[in-house]
Amino acid sequence: MNFWEKVSGMDRRWIYLLVAISVIFPMLVVIKFPVQITPEARQLFDAVESLPDSSVIFLTFDYYPSTLAETEPMSVAALNQMFRKNMKVVTMTTVPLGGPSIAERVTRKLAEKYGKVYGVDYVNLGYKANYVAVLKGMGSSIEAIYPADNTGTMLKDLPLMQKVKNYNDVKFIYVVADNGIIDYWISIVNAQYGTPVGAGVTAVMAPKMYSFVEAKQLTGLLGGMKGAAEYERLVNHEGNAIRGMDAQSMAHLLIIFLVVIGNIGFFATRKLRRGAQG
């Protein structure tokens, strides 16, 4: 067995170890390359920034705990921007596993930081089942779908919800999602009710979303942890996404290295394999 055959047949656990080192090492030895802003992230930031202060804005927590590393920094950065601008924030989720708990945890923490009052400055609507019906139903009446907020307080008892009856009263919808729900915010809410929608999505979903940005169905886009890091930079709030960028860089470089080595090994051993077959 020659060198390249040995390399090609390397135990997968060595690769796992290399990946672990590539992620852990940069967190201990901080290098901090500057995060450049893409036009799509800038567009989303500008869209929110250009809204008048005290506008009503929807922020969705359409993500599972599985993708918190990518999505939560987006929600945190967005809330920093919205509360700083004294916007009235209505949060909701269409994700049954964890969505309401995550929304509650993140909004309460940020609201405390900015001294915001629940029911006046922000409301967490929580979860309702069957997202297609939820999104469509809120077009005529939010209260018909959400008679009460996440904690069970009736919407009629919340001052903020007195002036938010349906999408007509919402200036912008900021969707943070890790699943196909974003498609319905675009095809049902934006297309039928005309409310502008901007999105922060996981990296896996981002390439598809470019098509909606180009068609002006989405106003701005954040893709994955890098997108979250861009937004953190835009709102001037260094969070977990910016802190994770060094590790992201090292891990990408390792994977590129592995692809190159894997291919060299493949071509180096191809002759041997052909010889053995012939």
Partner: peptide
Amino acid sequence: MLWRIPMG
């Protein structure tokens, strides 16, 4: 992969 990381 290179484009999406600050180092790359």
